[in-house]
Design a protein around this nucleic acid. Structure first.
Lengths: 187, 187
DNA sequence: TTAATCTACGGAGGCAGCCTCCGTTTGGCT
DNA sequence: AGCCAAACGGAGGCTGCCTCCGTAGATTAA
C-alpha cells in the first residue's frame, strides 16, 4: 500500500530545499528559528512552506523521523543485551543526545508527549512504549530503583538534554547523564 | 547612605500596580507573558512599564529579589548544619522550588548566569557563590561525589525545575530532586 | 504541439508582541 | 498660583505567525 501519489516536480524540489534550510536554521537558532527566514533562504514563498508543513512541529518531525525510527529499532535490539541496566542506560543516553540536537527541542518533545494533537505526539509516544520494555526488564533484574517510572526516566533524559544547552563543553549530555544516572552522593 | 530619592506619588503607585499584575501574569502564563497585557491590566501605558522596568528580566528580578535574599541568608545558616550533605541538599531543593515558581524561569535563570549584562546576573551569581561554600563543605566531609562541580549542581537543580513543568503532580520538584540526588540504580 | 486542467506557488494582509520616542500631563515645591 | 522636572501614554516601526486567494506553470490528453 505505498499510497502517496507522486509529487509534482517543483513541489518535490521545494520540499527538499525547505528541509535542508530548516536543518541549518534549527541548528543555528534552535527550534524557534524564523519560518519566514527558512522559506526565504530556500527561495520559496512562506505559503509554500506552510503547505508542505502546516505546523512547526510537522517540519521538526520530518527532520527527526529517521532518528526516531532508528531509536525504536535500537530499543528492540537492546532487549537482548546481557545487562538490562546498561541497555536502559544506553538507550536513555541516546534519547538525551537526540533531544540535545537542536536548542529547544527537549521542550518541544516533552510538550508533544502530552498533546495528542501534536504532529510529534505519535513518534514521542512510540518511543515511550519502546522504553517501557527496557525499564520493565531492568526492574525485574533488580538493577533499577523500584519506584521510578518510565515517564520519569524519559523526562530526566530530556532534562539532561535541556541542561546541556547551558553548558559550553562538547560532551555535556554524557557528563550530565552520568551524574543523574549515578547519583550525586559519594560512593 | 540610603540613596534612592523618593519617587513621585503617581510613579510609586504605578510601580506597585505593575508588580502586582506581573506576579499574576507570570503565574498564569509563565515568564513569557505579554508585557503589554501586564501594562494594560495595571491600567498603565506600555511606556510606563518600560520606564520602570527596562527589560523583562528587570521586572522578574524585582519579583524575585526577596526570595534571592532569603536564599542567600539560608546558605549562610546552613554552613552550621551538622550534616553537610543534607545542608547542601536542602539548599539545592529550595533553589529548585524557586526556579519552578514560574514557567520558563529556570531557562531565564540559567541564561542569566552566563550573561553579565543581564539584570538577573548579579543575583544568580551571588547564589552560585553561596552554594560553592556548601559544596566545599560537603566535599570535604566526603559525602559528595568527588568530581561534581558547583556549576553542575546548580544546573541540575534548575533542570529539575524545568522538568517539573512537564509533570502534573503537586510535588514534582521534590520527587524529581530525590531521583537525581539519589541516583537511579537500585540501592 | 497545443490546449485544458488543476496542482502548487507566492506574497499581501491581518494579527500580536516588542520596544522607542516624544508631545502632553501632573505632582510637588516655592 | 505658577513653575518645571518628573512621569505618563500610546502611536509607530519592526519582526514573526499564519491564512487566503489570484496566478503560474507542470502534467496530461488530444
Amino acid at each position: 500500500m505505498d499510497t502517496a501519489k507522486p509529487m509534482r516536480a517543483d513541489a518535490r524540489r521545494n520540499y527538499e530545499r525547505l528541509v535542508e534550510e530548516a536543518k541549518l536554521a534549527f541548528g543555528r537558532h534552535g527550534v524557534d528559528a524564523s519560518l519566514e527566514d527558512i522559506a526565504r533562504n530556500a527561495g520559496v514563498g512562506i505559503g509554500t512552506l506552510y503547505r508542505h508543513f502546516p505546523t512547526r512541529e510537522a517540519l521538526l518531525e520530518t527532520l527527526l523521523r529517521d532518528k526516531f525510527d532508528s531509536q525504536a529499532a535500537t530499543a528492540r535490539e537492546l532487549l537482548d543485551d546481557p545487562s538490562p541496566v546498561d541497555a536502559l542506560r544506553t538507550w536513555l543516553l541516546d534519547i538525551g543526545r537526540t533531544s540535545a540536537q537542536y536548542r529547544g527541542l527537549s521542550e518541544s518533545m516533552m510538550t508533544a508527549l502530552t498533546d495528542e494533537t501534536s504532529r510529534l505526539y505519535a513518534s514521542c509516544h512510540a518511543m515511550r512504549t519502546g522504553l517501557s520494555h527496557l525499564v520493565e526488564r531492568a526492574r525485574e533484574a533488580g538493577e533499577l530503583r523500584e519506584d521510578v517510572t518510565t515517564q520519569e526516566l524519559l523526562l530526566l533524559a530530556h532534562a539532561v538534554a535541556w541542561a546541556s544547552e547551558h553548558v559550553g563543553s562538547e560532551n555535556a549530555v554524557d557528563r550530565l547523564f552520568d551524574l543523574v544516572f549515578g547519583g550525586l552522593r559519594a560512593s
